[in-house]
């Protein structure tokens, strides 16, 4: 990929967005037939599918816990989801992201209701254009809700980046590749908890607090869209003639 001019002379970004503007967000819930719950989330060109199976019994009984359900999570990229083909073998990045995505969901799932079971979350990155882990968290949380798992709140996630010295919301792949910092943030807005926070890059203390504010602002927009998508799926009763 050629390096684009990340911040244009008119102050807009290489794709014409304002610094605090999200890419178009599309959310579909209940897209799979066999899973207990599922969601397809798109942030611009990033397309991520999440499926939840369970709570269920599993063959690996020794990892189960007597007082709660465990959450199992796999973040996985399809081999053709990236510019260069991704080897199907699990990468170190995927192993790390499976952990941080799971840990972003743990605080909101009311796991005590289902002791000695597993709630399985499978995240499939279908197309990667930056922000795949954040779209993964949003999709996973909606898939859990679609599966009817009791939760304290939804978790939604978005990344903030620093490109050409400017803090920008929802960075895409070009901005991630050529920018100075990438900071994914997941938040459960109604209970006020940040459940995923990573910073890949260097920021001053002041830049960090500004970046966190920007992320929370973006997350609240995604939270509204997520709630709307859930309402569309479950609140509209269709009366057959």
């Amino acid at each position: 990929m050629e390096k684009p001019r990340l911040i244009r002379e008119d102050g807009l970004r290489h794709d014409g967005r304002r610094p605090d503007e999200l890419r178009p967000v599309r959310i579909s819930i209940g897209v799979l037939n066999k899973a207990s719950g599922s969601a397809l989330v798109e942030y611009g060109g990033t397309k991520v599918l999440a499926a939840v199976h369970g709570p269920r019994e599993i063959s690996q009984r020794h990892i189960l816990l007597p007082d709660r359900a465990i959450i199992r999570c796999r973040y996985h990229m399809l081999s053709f989801s990236t510019h260069e083909r991704k080897s199907p073998a699990p990468s170190r990045r995927e192993i790390e992201l499976s952990k941080v995505v799971r840990e972003s969901l743990e605080p909101v799932v009311i796991s005590e209701v289902f002791p000695r079971t597993a709630i399985d979350v499978f995240v499939e990155v279908i197309n990667a254009d930056g922000g795949t882990r954040t779209a993964a968290v949003t999709a996973a949380s909606l898939a859990l809700a679609d599966a009817g798992i009791p939760m304290r709140d939804l978790v939604v996630a978005i990344a903030v980046g620093k490109v050409s010295g400017t803090l920008v919301l929802d960075i895409d792949e070009a901005e991630d590749m050529y920018g100075e910092a990438d900071m994914p943030v997941a938040v459960a807005p109604s209970i006020g908890l940040i459940t995923l926070l990573q910073l890949n890059g260097v920021l001053s203390r002041e830049e960090f607090s500004e970046a966190l504010k920007l992320a929370l602002k973006g997350a609240s927009q995604i939270y509204e869209k997520s709630r709307e998508a859930l309402r569309d799926r479950y609140m509209k009763v269709k009366v057959e003639e």
């Binding site: 941080v100 799971r102 840990e103 743990e106 605080p107 900071m183 459960a188 209970i191 908890l193 940040i194 459940t195 995923l196 926070l197 990573q198 910073l199 890949n200 890059g201 260097v202 920021l203 001053s204 203390r205 960090f208």
Partner: peptide, 12 residues
């Protein structure tokens, strides 16, 4: 300066 952050562990 802050050269990286990682929240680690189940919690918020």
């Amino acid at each position: 300066r802050i050269a990286g952050i990682q929240k680690s562990g189940s919690g918020g």
